[in-house]
Design a protein around this nucleic acid. Structure first.
Lengths: 83, 83, 83, 83
DNA sequence: CTGCCATTTTACCGGC
DNA sequence: GCCGGTAAAATGGCAG
């Protein structure tokens, strides 16, 4: 196991800082998303309904991806994926 | 209120697509974070401990921010924030 | 799985009622808390500041707990927790 | 405004402690509720569905209360609330 | 009635 | 592959 004391300390610091940096980016994007919802609300959309519609689209996409993956599987099984 | 049927449809589509785009970015960053954790694990760190360290640092920062907010609040309550 | 129709109905009713009962207790306590804040306000305290102080104390406690958890984690990782 | 320094300090401490005490009780009850849900899950109920059912009952109760309040209003308007 | 804050719900991630 | 726990999001409630 990498011990906190020793050369690993630099590695640890590097990892932690990279993660924290990425976390900030993620937070920033979450803020952007909130802003877009607020904008929608400002022009008269119901935010909750907006969220529902997006969730639904995500689920549908997941289903479609599933279907596609299945199709790929069949194609592969039938040797249809080799150029 | 913006009605789903009618001219608002374009606005709605635009909002939804912008949000979905941002969501993808967010997911991508989440993936990057996962990768960094995986890298840490690969060089021998305990992922659970790593997370705990990061959580603690976040908590410490939150507390410092709160202290500051509290101070500002007291200043305000005592009228020390007016010019 | 326990089916809504059938003998499980009694179990279901019992669970739901117990939860609703507990929920009422919880609501009652929330009311008590509100009352104490109102009392504080009545004797001249700034409710917002009061809340902030309490939040800060909670945060400090959380941090202490986390420090301890982290220490335990390290001990465990180093095998210092086995009798 | 009540100043933190002075006799108010005791009042403040008292208020804070009473609130924290009540908060603990509230947390304890929340824990009890979680336990009941866990028990439901253990005997085969779907926790999410359980929550939905409870939310629905709460809404229905709110509606009924609304109706009752309205009825009282009418009664009052018609002088039916005097013995 | 608006914005803030807490609680609840949802989604994710590591472990078994 | 599922489950349990943990963090993020979202909904609801409250003070101002």
């Amino acid at each position: 196991m990498a011990r906190p004391g020793g050369i690993a300390a630099d590695q640890l610091r590097s990892l932690v800082e990279r993660i924290e940096r990425l976390d900030e980016e993620r937070k920033a994007i979450a803020g952007d998303i909130r802003d877009v919802f607020a904008e929608g609300k400002a022009v008269g959309f119901d935010v909750r309904a907006l969220r529902q519609v997006i969730r639904l689209r995500r689920l549908e996409k997941a289903e479609r991806d599933e279907q596609e993956a299945l199709l790929d599987l069949y194609k592969h099984a039938l040797g249809m994926d080799r150029r």
